[in-house]
């Protein structure tokens, strides 16, 4: 799928240093409306750092961010949220001492001077039902929920604001089989509503299933853009930086063993 027009999000030369360490160097990235871009890379490639910059958690050391064609700065999370960038963090950033409804509406409660708990609870149920979520009670504190349930709450929260761009940091990492499928469906639904989606994942199957483009980061730099029809071998080489690596060696070992088994049979 090719998307036209100005990208929702466009990054130019984004760098981020933590002391002497360059977590990101000269990152270029475009996300269009109605497009799912997957951000893949090995551990320490800088994926989460990039997401945190876009969410306003970290400030970039250098580079330009354009949102819907206008250059913007993201000094804090509130700025990112008000532009329409919603983020689901890997460390889920929920308040364990608050209940599900309070967490979903945190920072944007209905009628601030006389909280409308009933309306918030109804809206929370609607959102969670759209996600086919299985959460028994919204009036229990988040501390009592499982990892997958918390993920669902976090995603529900990101959708509340009707954002233009959703950042998902490992959305399926903590989820079971059915819930993973639900989240992938959800990502497609979000894309079909015309939102841009940037998702980080280690799971190549998930990435291939929903992504329109796959952007590879390696050691904090761009290392190629692929499409879902790219072979696993190509992707893994880009991620690890060489044709010869632990993954390919392993694959080679298995194929020789399979073929030798085939000969003896």
């Amino acid at each position: 799928m090719t998307a036209q027009g100005t990208p929702v999000l466009s990054l130019h030369g984004i760098s981020k240093h933590f002391g002497a360490v360059s977590a990101l160097t000269d990152i270029e990235l475009d996300v269009h409306a109605g497009e799912v871009v997957a951000l893949v890379g090995d551990n320490g490639a800088g994926k989460s750092t990039l997401v945190k910059i876009l969410a306003g958690v970290h400030a970039p050391s250098a580079g330009r961010i354009a949102f819907q064609g206008r250059e913007v700065t993201l000094p804090d999370p509130a700025a990112a949220l008000s532009l329409g960038i919603a983020t689901v963090f890997q460390d889920l950033a929920l308040c364990e001492n608050l209940d599900v409804v309070a967490n979903i509406f945190l920072g944007r409660e209905l009628s601030p001077y006389a909280l409308d708990e009933v309306a918030m609870e109804i809206k929370a149920w609607t959102l969670l039902q759209e996600l086919s979520a299985r959460i028994p009670s919204l009036r229990e504190t988040v501390a009592s929920l499982s990892g997958g349930q918390r993920q669902t709450v976090a995603i529900a929260r990101s959708l509340l604001l009707e954002p233009k761009l959703i950042l998902l940091d490992e959305p399926t990492a903590a989820l079971g089989v059915a819930q993973t499928a639900e989240v992938l469906d959800l990502i497609e639904r979000v894309r079909d509503r015309g939102l841009g989606v940037l998702m980080i994942s280690h799971n190549m199957e998930d990435v291939r299933a929903v992504a329109d483009r796959i952007v590879v980061l390696r050691l904090g730099r761009n290392n190629g853009i692929f499409y879902p029809d790219a072979s696993n071998h190509e992707l893994v080489s880009a991620i690890t930086g060489a044709g010869e690596n632990a993954v390919s060696r392993r694959a080679a070992r298995r194929s020789t063993r399979d073929s030798s088994l085939g000969e003896t049979a």
Binding site: P77, A78, F89, A93, L94, C95, E96, N97, A102, L106
Partner: peptide, 15 residues
């Protein structure tokens, strides 16, 4: 309450 429970989560929620 949110700040007292999880300061970083509250910050990320835009508080």
């Amino acid at each position: 309450k949110a700040v007292g429970g999880n300061r970083e989560a509250a910050r990320r929620a835009g508080i």
